[in-house]
Simulated scan of single mutants.
Amino acid sequence: MVSRNDGYGENLLHRMQTCIDSIVTLAERHEVPTELLLVEWNPPADTTSLEEALEWPDQTTQTAIDILTVPPEIHATLPGSDELPLFEYIGKNVGIRRADGEFVLSTNPDLIYSKTFFSHLASEPLSHESFYRINKYNVDSLVSREMSIDEQLEFCRNHIAAKYTPAGYRERPYSRRLRNIVYSYYTYLQNPWRIVDQFRRLGDGAPRSLYDLHHLAAGDFILMGKEQWETIGGHPEFEYNFNVDSYTIVNAAGNGLTETVFPDEIRAYHQPHDDFHDVRPQGDWDELVEYSRRLLTDEEQLTDTSTTWGLADEEMQRESICSREA
């Protein structure tokens, strides 16, 4: 996960703290050996570091926590650095590239995972032939740190504002259902070839475009083997953040991996914050969709990826915050 102490979206440190606390607590409870890599990107000079701003456990039995720092001087060398203070997906690549685990989850530091996610990791093996996605549920208010993890998860279940599933984005209350239906039909009108591709998919079940994948909110959760991340060269490294996650899952599927969506009870809850999508640099959506069609119907092959993804040639400061007991 990637962040910096710049107050992004308001209540950033609170959202990060509850996220980290929940991961440590659930990993301990379900005995899931976990490495948490937090990449601090281009830390502002006028704020404290994340190591100082957040609270950390003194010792755990299951979770090792490290902070990797990408300093301003490295950030300044990247194209578009004057427009974007944090390159989310290049930062995630920094962590993916340096992760020690057999499987690596690219995620965001404001989620709270369900207990069923960690119990699944404790009891069911993951496959190197799949990349994994999860349903994300937005909650309508921040989760209190005064609550236990069980109380927090109960609060989230009772305060759902919207959800992102393979069926699409759905808001609550259900009085907005008409708008949800209109949005679904709008996407078909924008891309009428989707109907043709869905009929073609009946033959072999393979995805034919981005729309056949669980592409909504993919940046919050993409899990696959470390080896598979290396094969596709991590996340694409563009001069923008928005929609990069969709390219990632298209590349994974185009490389022959099967998308596996966890059952709905295995989910992630997202705490609310201001949305800056409209002001961030972003790629062309139609170009992304056309790319997905070409790659997934074998009209185009996944190009050779850069060997230097994840700032491979740069030496990163790595601070061990918490190590697992032997």
Rank of each mutant, 00 (worst) to 15 (best):
V2L: 14
S3F: 05
G9L: 01
L12P: 12
L13I: 10
H14V: 14
M16N: 07
C19P: 02
S22A: 07
S22G: 02
V24S: 00
E28P: 15
E28S: 13
E28G: 15
R29G: 04
R29F: 12
H30N: 14
E31Y: 15
E35P: 03
E35H: 09
L36D: 06
L36P: 08
V39K: 04
E40S: 11
W41F: 13
W41V: 15
S49D: 12
E51H: 11
E55R: 08
P57D: 06
P57K: 03
T60I: 04
I65R: 05
D66C: 10
D66V: 04
V70C: 09
P71R: 10
P71D: 03
I74P: 03
P79A: 15
P85Y: 09
L86I: 03
F87I: 03
G95W: 07
I96T: 07
R97F: 00
A99Y: 02
D100W: 12
E102C: 10
D110L: 13
T116Y: 11
A122E: 09
S123L: 12
P125K: 05
P125S: 09
L126K: 00
L126Q: 00
H128Q: 14
S130N: 14
R133Q: 11
R133A: 08
R133P: 06
D140M: 07
R145E: 08
R145A: 00
E146W: 10
M147V: 12
D150K: 13
L153M: 06
L153K: 07
E154R: 13
F155T: 03
F155K: 07
C156S: 09
H159I: 10
K163G: 12
P166I: 08
G168H: 09
Y169A: 02
P173F: 14
P173Q: 14
Y174M: 04
R177C: 03
N180L: 03
T187F: 08
T187Y: 07
P192I: 13
I195F: 15
Q198R: 14
F199P: 01
F199Y: 12
L202H: 15
D204P: 09
R208M: 02
L210E: 00
L210M: 06
Y211A: 05
G219Y: 06
M224N: 02
G225S: 11
K226H: 13
W229L: 02
E230Y: 01
I232R: 00
G233M: 12
H235D: 05
H235P: 05
H235S: 04
E239R: 08
Y240R: 03
F242I: 07
V250S: 02
G254A: 02
G254Q: 00
F262Q: 05
Y269T: 04
H270G: 11
D275L: 12
F276E: 03
H277V: 04
V279E: 04
R280D: 01
R280Y: 06
Q282R: 12
D284C: 11
V289Y: 02
S292W: 04
T297D: 00
Q301I: 00
L302R: 05
D304R: 14
D304A: 11
T305P: 00
S306M: 12
T307C: 08
T308P: 00
G310C: 01
L311G: 03
E315S: 10
M316W: 07
M316A: 06
E319M: 09
R324H: 10
A326N: 15
